[in-house]
């Protein structure tokens, strides 16, 4: 019952968000597009965070998704947005599947450190590769939509709708995943891996799947972000980019799929506000919010919703 209600609620929000685009100022649509693209990366981190794993290198997949789009456009002239997004997701997924064999053996800070190292390898390569623009990166060709080539505000609306569509499908699938055996094993694996193995299932296999899911989502997010920004550069793989995603993940918490999207939107809004009004205090704001969240809301902002619900349930 409850899941049907949240499904309908989500659908209503989605339609409202999509219809709002023409009435919003351009900068707001762009901001929302980037926020919702990044939310996919966050959603991937949420999948990992539920087993207690933090990846300080999720920017690896983000960057792979972004460069996959940019390079395909540059080398082949192929610009269909949907196909490119899928390509970004698949590319990042393949990389995640291969390094997953390795990552799945690690836990806690070792997992965080190894993913950090892997993303820094990519950063190191990109920074020194002159044919790819080194530190400056290069521009992404203007995307098209099944042969239709919008410009200006139209283009940003189409990108926004595409992002919303990908988000909706991803959210639905991840929601289903959380209800599957593999998804439901998150808390058990965090609690007691040995018991899980003795129930007849491979813990590293499950973690490997989670790494792949997070990788695909990271790639999709990076691909959408690259088209929306119109530019890619090695900083997309740098550890501070990963740090930003981790920040939103902790802020959002692991309880609700929707929290990733709300959290990401709030983050981007806060960022654009802070960069305008008090650029020299932006990181301090981030750090303080993160600290307060960890200290006082360890389950993330999403847990506010469940607390309210409980309170309402207790009251007659």
């Amino acid at each position: 019952m409850q899941s049907r209600a949240s499904l309908l609620g989500g659908l209503a929000l989605l339609v409202a968000a999509a219809l709002a685009a023409p009435f919003l100022p351009d900068w707001m649509v762009s901001l929302a597009t980037i926020a919702f693209a990044n939310a996919l990366v966050v959603l991937g981190l949420v999948v990992l965070w539920r087993v207690g794993l933090v990846s300080f290198g999720q920017a690896l997949y983000y960057c792979i998704g972004a460069y996959a789009v940019a390079l395909t456009g540059r080398w082949t002239g192929f610009t269909d947005a949907l196909a490119l997004v899928l390509l970004g997701g698949v590319g990042a997924g393949i990389v995640a599947a291969s390094i997953g064999f390795l990552l799945a053996r690690y836990r806690e800070i070792f997992f965080a450190m190894l993913s950090l190292a892997l993303s820094m390898i990519l950063y190191g390569v990109l920074v020194k590769t002159e044919s790819l623009g080194s530190t400056d990166g290069f521009s992404v060709a203007t995307p098209t939509f099944f042969g239709y080539a919008p410009h200006g505000a139209q283009l940003s609306h189409w990108l926004y709708w595409l992002t919303l569509g990908v988000d909706a499908i991803a959210a639905l699938l991840v929601g289903l995943y959380f209800r599957s055996v593999a998804g439901a094993l998150a808390a058990p694996i965090r609690d007691n891996e040995i018991r899980v193995e003795f129930l007849g299932i491979s813990v590293s296999g499950i973690i490997h799947t989670k790494v792949i899911i997070a990788g695909v989502l990271g790639g999709l997010g990076g691909a959408l972000a690259a088209m929306s920004i119109g530019h890619v550069d090695p900083n997309m793989a740098y550890w501070t980019t990963s740090g930003g995603f981790v920040f939103v993940t902790v802020l959002a918490g692991s309880g609700y799929v929707a929290a990733a999207f709300v959290g990401s939107l709030a983050f981007e809004a806060l960022r654009s506000f802070a960069v305008d009004v008090m650029p020299q205090l932006w990181q301090m704001t981030l750090g303080s919010v993160l600290l307060l969240t960890i200290l006082f809301l360890p389950e993330g902002l999403g847990s506010l919703v469940s607390r309210l619900r409980q309170r309402r349930a207790v009251k007659p």
Partner: peptide, 9 residues
């Protein structure tokens, strides 16, 4: 990490 961000500013 949060403390690091604060101290950067």
């Amino acid at each position: 990490y949060a403390t690091f961000l604060i101290l950067e500013d």
